[in-house]
């Protein structure tokens, strides 16, 4: 009896702690979302701004129009989608060569691939900016997409899965005369679907959230991504329009949060692939 009570009390205590901590973690998002759902002056009437009353979509609507957010969302969606598809294709191809084909210099080439994983974007942008400029890719979709189409991480991840597929599958297919591309398309890729999903999700989020590279090569309005566009809504000198930024934040973050909730498992798998396997 006594232990039951103690256990029950502990459980309640733990739930209380969880709720408090969750509230703290969520507070920034909650505050911003609620401000976005209030009309101008209401948004700054603290702490009443934190109560879910007098909600309206007006702020989000004006942010949408003022920031041309529809266009920016489409830009981000297009760029992230293309990069995701591209990365999956280039990763599949290169991983196949490394996992299933034998050729002189394979080890050395793979070592070079791995080494490039260490080079951060922050180092390469200096020169890439000039390359893009030379190609005439400033303010263009190619400029946003092409440099990100191949990642060592993707090649590494997919190769890892391919190496775990039984060798006999390839041999059985070879006996039937299945060529490399067909085996890749019909057997290897479908069998790697969970990993490809994680890679795709990861790539999509990374591209959607990218800031440094787009900020260096995009200066016009047409090709801005949603991340860059938010900066435009940031009007520190005009406080009356300040809450438009909250509306923009909600618009920019919402697609990503939906993805997070839907694909949580794949995301965790992608993130932990690097950590647990070392």
């Amino acid at each position: 009896m006594a232990t039951d009570t103690v256990r029950g009390a502990r459980k309640v205590g733990r739930y209380a702690l969880l709720v408090v901590v969750a509230a703290v973690v969520l507070f920034p998002i909650y505050a911003v979302v609620l401000q976005a759902l209030k009309s101008g002056p209401d948004a700054f009437d603290h702490p009443r701004s934190l109560l879910p009353v007098d909600l309206t979509f007006d702020t989000i609507r004006s942010a949408w129009t003022d920031g041309n957010l529809g266009h920016l969302l489409l830009n981000s969606l297009f760029v992230s989608g293309m990069v995701t598809i591209g990365v999956i294709i280039t990763s599949l191809l290169a991983a196949y060569a490394f996992a299933f084909l034998e050729f002189p210099g394979r080890q050395a080439l793979f070592a070079i691939f791995l080494a490039t994983m260490l080079v951060p974007v922050e180092v390469t942008v200096v020169i890439n900016q000039r390359t893009a400029n030379w190609l005439g890719w400033d303010n263009s979709y190619q400029g946003l997409i092409v440099p990100s189409l191949a990642t060592t991480f993707g090649v590494f991840l997919v190769r890892q899965v391919f190496l775990q597929l039984p060798k006999e599958l390839r041999e059985a297919a070879a006996l039937d005369g299945v060529g490399h591309m067909r085996f890749l398309y019909e057997v290897a890729a479908p069998l790697s679907r969970p990993t490809l999903g994680a890679l795709g999700l990861f790539t999509f989020l990374g591209t959607w959230n990218a800031y440094l590279w787009p900020s260096q090569i995009i200066t016009d309005n047409d090709h801005q991504t949603i991340q860059l566009g938010l900066n435009k809504l940031k009007t520190p000198n005009d406080i009356s329009k300040f809450n438009l930024l909250t509306g923009g934040l909600v618009v920019a973050a919402l697609p990503i949060f939906i993805m997070l909730v839907v694909f949580q498992r794949q995301l965790v798998r992608g993130l932990t692939a690097g950590a647990v396997k070392g």
């Binding site: 039984p166 006999e168 041999e171 059985a172 070879a174 006996l175 005369g177």
Partner: peptide, 20 residues
């Protein structure tokens, strides 16, 4: 001669069925 042109079929120890 490539395997596919040898007029043979092979059954593997692990069966090598396509799981999907």
């Amino acid at each position: 001669t490539q395997p596919k042109l040898r007029d043979i079929a092979m059954v593997f120890q692990s069966y090598a069925l396509y799981p999907h």
